[in-house]
Design a protein around this nucleic acid. Structure first.
Lengths: 150, 150
DNA sequence: ATAACACGCTTCCATTATGGGAGCAATAAT
DNA sequence: ATTATTGCTCCCATAATGGAAGCGTGTTAT
C-alpha cells in the first residue's frame, strides 16, 4: 500500500494524510510566524530542509489545496506561496502544537509572554493572526513579536 | 542525518519530532476516542497498521514519555498502554486536527453533533474528555458518543 | 500434565520516502 | 554579453514503512 493511500474515513486520519509529515507544518509556521513566501526563504529555515524535500512538499501542499502558488510580479523567477483558506484554518492546530511543544520542550525557543498571550484569549488571537497573514503580515518580524500580538 | 535528530529549538519542531509521523496521533485517538489499551486492540484499527510499525510506535511513544506501559494484571501476556500527562495534553491538538479534518474531508465519519458539541465550549469538553480517559473511559463506545459528551 | 492457542513482539525483506549534492532552464543584474 | 540568482529536477545513498512469517511466554482446553 502506498503510504498516502486513504486508510480510513476518520477525520484525524484525513488530517494526517494532509499534513502528517515532518515538514508540512513547519512550512505553515514559516508563513504564519515569519511571513516567508518563496522557495529560497523556506530553504533558509533553521531546520535545513533539502531542496528536493522542499520541492516535493510545496508541490504536494498545493495539490492538496493548502497552498496557492503564483509567479511573482517583480521577479518572474520567483514563485509566491500563500496559504489558502484551508491552509489558514490550520492556525489553531499549529498553535496547539506549539503550546504543547513549548510546555514539554526543555530547550524551547518560545517566549513565555507569547504563550500566555495566546492562552489568554485564543479565539481572538487566532482571528488576529489570520487577518495578519491574509494581509501579508506575520506574527514575528526580525525576531520580535508583532506589536499587535502582545 | 537521521530523521529524528533535533533540527532546531522551535517548539513546533519539537512537537513534530514527538508525534509528527503517520501513526502516533492515531494511537492517541484510539485511546481517547475508543478506550483501546493493548497491542491487539490498536492492531485492529481501521487503518491496518502493521505489527512491526505498531511495535516501533509503542516503544517510541513510551520512550518519549507519552505512553506508560504496564503488564496487565488479569492476563500477564498483555501489556496495558495508557497516556501519561504529557500524552493527555495532546487532546487539544487532537481535537483541532479532527475539527480541521472534518471540515475539509468530504467523506468524514465525524458526526456534526459531536463537532458542534466540541466547538460549543472547548475548554470544558477538553476537561471532561481528560477526566474520562484518566478514569478508564473514552469518548466513544460501541460507535456512540458517551452520554456525558453531548 | 500436556497440547493447542493467544498475545506481544521481533525479524526479514521489498517498497517507499527522505537527505544531500550536482546540475539545469529561465530570469535578473552587471 | 557575461555572471549570478532562483526555483526546481535528477540521481543515489540512507532511513522508515508495509507485510508476512515466526518466536517466546503465558493462558486455556482437554
Amino acid at each position: 500500500m502506498k503510504r498516502n493511500d486513504r486508510k480510513s474515513d476518520c477525520a484525524i486520519n484525513y488530517a494526517l494524510d494532509m499534513i502528517g509529515d515532518p515538514w508540512s507544518m513547519l512550512i505553515v509556521r514559516d508563513i504564519v510566524y515569519f511571513g516567508k513566501r518563496t522557495f529560497g526563504e523556506f530553504l533558509a529555515s533553521q531546520e535545513r530542509i533539502a531542496t528536493s524535500a522542499l520541492s516535493r512538499r510545496l508541490i504536494d501542499l498545493e495539490y492538496k489545496g493548502i497552498l496557492d502558488k503564483t509567479t511573482s510580479l517583480e521577479d518572474k523567477r520567483k514563485e509566491t506561496y500563500t496559504l489558502t483558506n484551508k491552509g489558514l484554518d490550520l492556525i489553531p492546530t499549529m498553535l496547539e502544537l506549539a503550546a504543547w511543544g513549548a510546555r514539554y520542550d526543555a530547550n524551547t525557543g518560545a517566549s513565555s509572554a507569547w504563550i500566555t498571550a495566546v492562552e489568554q484569549d485564543k479565539p481572538a488571537m487566532i482571528d488576529r493572526i489570520r487577518q495578519a497573514v491574509r494581509t501579508g503580515n506575520a506574527v514575528f518580524s526580525e525576531g520580535k513579536e508583532a506589536t499587535w500580538s502582545l
